[in-house]
Amino acid sequence: MYTLTQVNKHYVKGRTTVAAVTNLDLHIADGEWLAVQGRTGAGKSTLLQLLGALDRPTSGTVMFGDQDLGQLSEAELTRVRAASIGFVFQTFNLIPTLSAAENVETALAPLEMATSERRSRAAAALQSVGLTDRARHLPSELSGGQQQRVGIARALVKQPRVLLADEPTGNLDEDTRDDIVELLEQLWIERGLTLVLITHDTSLADRAQRVATMREGNLAVRAGGGRTD
């Protein structure tokens, strides 16, 4: 799915250049669950942005299938994100003025699709995360766990190949965290998704097939406890 070769990503802040990712090599197989850990500022989010076609590397190549994301135009990157990549955010990032169903629909808005079809797919996505009865509720009327379920439904409604989750349980209590983790794991298994999950939670990371730990912009990868069949 992903092949990263000698990837560097530098940010310029004033007169200082910060190396967020340094000479990184990584292969993520199709359908793999990779957990990424590391201290704050270790480059986890930068890695996620590179994998999510949100940013281009300063040097090196980020191959997504046969596409070199570093060489694509902004419009092409947008199309990659619209069609193939789902995001789950730590802070849920739901649109506060839209209902749960409408939030899910926003992921389908860039796709050529009739309104009725978009609505039925959003309803089905909410059903798959157990929120049918909350479809018309605004985010402010939902609990944190329910909001994250909406976020997951939004990420998956377009049936992406890849799900990128940035601390998806970081803002949840322990019980809710377990529910969300089980849901993600179930969806990963059912749909054959490639799942890249950033987390500080080692118990959660250990449920992945592999665990990559970022240190000073580079990676050390070990096997996780997740199923490999």
Partner: peptide, 28 residues
């Protein structure tokens, strides 16, 4: 990711071109 799940009815039609392509070489 050799097979797409069909839990969400009809969603496969949306990205039919991607389903026709090999799963390891998405061409969005």
């Amino acid at each position: 990711m050799s097979e797409h799940d069909n839990t969400i009815a009809g969603l496969d039609d949306v990205l039919s071109n991607e389903q026709e392509s090999p799963s390891t070489t998405p061409s969005p």
